[in-house]
Design a protein around this nucleic acid. Structure first.
Lengths: 346, 346
DNA sequence: TTATATTTTCAAAGCGCTTTGATTTTTTGC
DNA sequence: GCAAAAAATCAAAGCGCTTTGAAAATATAA
């Protein structure tokens, strides 16, 4: 390869004694180019390391061939640990379809302006909306901007029609809570995520529904909504274990919180499973595995990486064929019994 | 704002009865436009929600105003949990400088081709090289392609001149190991990362140097190189605690591994700190905090998010002023004493 | 062999900006 | 009040592709 010379289409077509039209079409696999010419063109392109100018191609085509992801993030705020796995899944699909992935980190106050820019400047052909809030302003905004989008998660039910991929969080939590109740547990704690996030609201609803169905009381002292990380899981668990009447089981919204809970439990000399049952929601993050023959935790599981793949696939399909209307997808979390749940001992 | 009409520069300048030149210059803050005109232009742009076409601007300028990050990733491989934090830091800087962040997820076998494309197509003005390997082929490749780059981490010392930001891993680990030795520990385990990563090699060198300096033996049974996640940390710790002569202290290469180690230690009824001392390398991931008045772990700490910021800043500076030669930066990890280390009891 | 259909190739016109070099308008100096 | 200098604006060329509509080359039918 002769990489020292940077060629453009004009240079290459002159070298081949062909028009730019023909060369362009040969490279883009148009049918109206003879096989002989196509292979001649392609091997010359290969030889000279020719790659079409990205921006020229995009300008001419009028399509960005790119999908945007917006990450709102204040200076010291936490970046969601689920993000990397989602991106890995989505990015994989983009690569297969020759789409680019465009990520913007932005202060919350500049977020709206960013979306407007993304839409109007033609930087991207669509966006993925992350971490939907209750009554999220981005849904109407993106509709107004006519920028195709799909939400990972769901807003509240009052929000009108829009495309999303979500887990049936309510059903997942009610089902798992019932499982604990069936094992004889009555004092069950809920270690939830922040309730500005709609998934946390739904999980709580599921939990409460199951408890009420069995006429059990949801003790507010046993419920918390907080950032889902190890230290918060630890602190809350420590606190409820010190109550006069501690819980015998816990529903936990994330693996990280569960690790903290486990640390607290072990620290007071109790055993997960034997002394206190735990069910955890497991996003199957690649660096937080809860697998094996019998997994450590009984869990509700759903791969966030697969979610990334599906969201990306849907969005691309819609962009390429707009009559392919973007769907509303609801997945059920898988319920997997592991070592952290046991019948209540009397 | 009148967002239903999508205007381009021509429309806007016709509306204003000005030339495209003047409008473009007004918007881009060129000095040769009068203040009066500039404000008239800007408010019209605002009013119509005009945003310059991204690709047209890039094509005309001949600059991508974008930085690339390549994430090699096989189907089921783990995505590095550090990645998100690094991206958060870098992305923040990009946003401030109006640069775009371009992320490519790629199968390892297509990686080289991707770099070539990134360079030749003008998609990006520079790239950040992640997870440098021993004798990494990307260094010569990017030099050949004349694409500005900076490595997060370092290759082996034989690789010739290139820009990087790295931690002094060797010094960090030798220092921390000596701290343990000073506390009376002699049987010290090393729970390291995979030694295909150059940082792991350096950490091991530091560990061995400290041990040898004090004439202590590095028992191979107490050393392991593995992926730095909770389950591996757990398994290895379980294993070494069952030895006839278990270690009294451990050097651990990541917080996630340390969580696993802690679980194993607690499970056998021992206490971190009292029964076994631990020093962990803490990348200060936002979702894995080891802070507080007295942190849980004695640790070597260095913020990966700050690293992202610095790398991004340097790269942008170099791209904007190529005589601003890209540097080689070595940071010392901070040594913070927490609750996980104690003098060896006899 | 000639007329017609088919395949292959081409010249030129965009895509929507930025930038160059020229022109017009305004300001300043005497 | 007029020439020279400074400030503001403009027309047009160019960035490197894709795409349209026309032309040339080749294949097929009569």
């Amino acid at each position: 390869m002769l990489n020292s010379i940077i060629m453009n289409l004009e240079d290459l077509s002159k070298h081949l004694k062909l028009s730019q039209t023909t060369v362009s079409r040969a490279l883009n696999d148009f049918p109206e180019v003879s096989e002989k010419t196509r292979s001649r063109v392609k091997s010359a392109a290969q030889k000279f390391g020719y790659r079409p100018s990205h921006h020229a191609a995009r300008l001419a085509k009028g399509k960005a061939m790119a999908i945007g992801h917006v990450v709102p993030l204040a200076e010291h705020a936490m970046i969601n640990p689920h993000f990397a796995d989602f991106i890995a899944g989505a990015g994989d699909v983009y690569a297969q379809h020759h789409y680019d992935m465009h990520i913007s980190v932005v202060n919350s106050d500049e977020e709206e302006s960013l979306y407007r820019d993304l839409a109007r400047s033609g930087k991207v052909d669509g966006v993925v909306v992350h971490a939907p809030q209750i009554n999220d302003y981005r849904i109407p905004l993106l509709k107004e901007l006519q920028l195709p989008f799909i939400v990972h998660g769901r807003c509240d039910d009052s929000t009108p029609d829009y495309a999303f991929l979500d887990i049936n969080n309510k059903r997942a939590f009610s089902r798992a809570t019932e499982y604990l109740i069936d094992l004889g547990h009555q004092r069950i704690a809920l270690l939830n995520g922040l309730e500005t996030m709609s998934f946390a609201v739904r999980r709580k609803l599921g939990f409460i529904a199951a408890m009420e169905k069995h006429n059990l009381c949801c003790d507010p002292a046993l419920m918390v909504q907080q950032e889902m990380i190890e230290p918060t899981g630890y602190a809350f668990t420590k606190q409820i274990l010190a109550l006069p009447e501690p819980p015998t089981a816990m529903m936990i919204a994330s693996m990280l919180s569960a690790m903290g809970a486990m640390r607290a439990i072990q620290e007071v000399g109790k055993k997960v499973g034997e002394d206190i049952s735990i069910i955890v929601y497991d996003d199957q993050l690649s660096f937080l595995q809860n697998s094996g023959e019998i997994p450590l935790f009984t869990s509700l599981r759903s791969s966030i990486r697969e979610a990334g793949k599906t969201v990306a696939t849907q969005l691309i399909q819609h962009i390429q064929q707009p009559d392919n209307v973007l769907p509303q997808i609801i997945w059920d979390a898988e319920f997997v019994i592991g070592n952290s749940t046991q019948r209540l001992q009397h």
